[in-house]
């Protein structure tokens, strides 16, 4: 798999990371090396093997539908870099 700078830029955009041309070039180099190592997995025949996401076979871990008190709003907001007494604050999402 060839990792191009275009691909690095696309992935950076998806990841919400701003990268200078130099960083993109460096990442392209490092990612290429790692991804070509990852391609090693292709040597292993996994035909017919089901992908395994959860290592242990446990199911149905469920919680009862019982209301617990929510947190004080002050505690929800206090770590925010910008907030009012009531809400978080972000740059406008619509034009």
């Amino acid at each position: 798999m060839q990792i191009t700078e275009e691909l690095v830029s696309y992935v950076a955009q998806l990841s919400r990371l701003r990268m200078s041309p130099e960083e993109t070039a460096e990442m392209q180099k490092q990612m290429s090396e790692i991804v070509s190592y990852m391609d090693k997995l292709n040597e292993l025949d996994t035909d017919g093997v089901e992908p395994l996401s959860h290592i242990f076979n446990i199911t149905n871990v469920l919680r009862d539908d019982t209301v617990a008190p929510s947190y004080a709003r002050e505690d929800i907001l206090k770590n925010a870099p910008e907030h009012t007494e009531e809400t978080f604050v972000v740059p406008k999402t619509v034009e």
């Binding site: 871990v61 469920l62 919680r63 009862d64 539908d65 929510s70 947190y71 709003r73 929800i76 770590n79």
Partner: peptide, 26 residues
Amino acid sequence: GAPNTHCCPVCTGMPGTLPVLNRQVV
């Protein structure tokens, strides 16, 4: 409800918090 008063670390995505599924939803 007043803004951000029906909230906890889980539903506001605070670091390290985890979801546990509500039986009634299923």
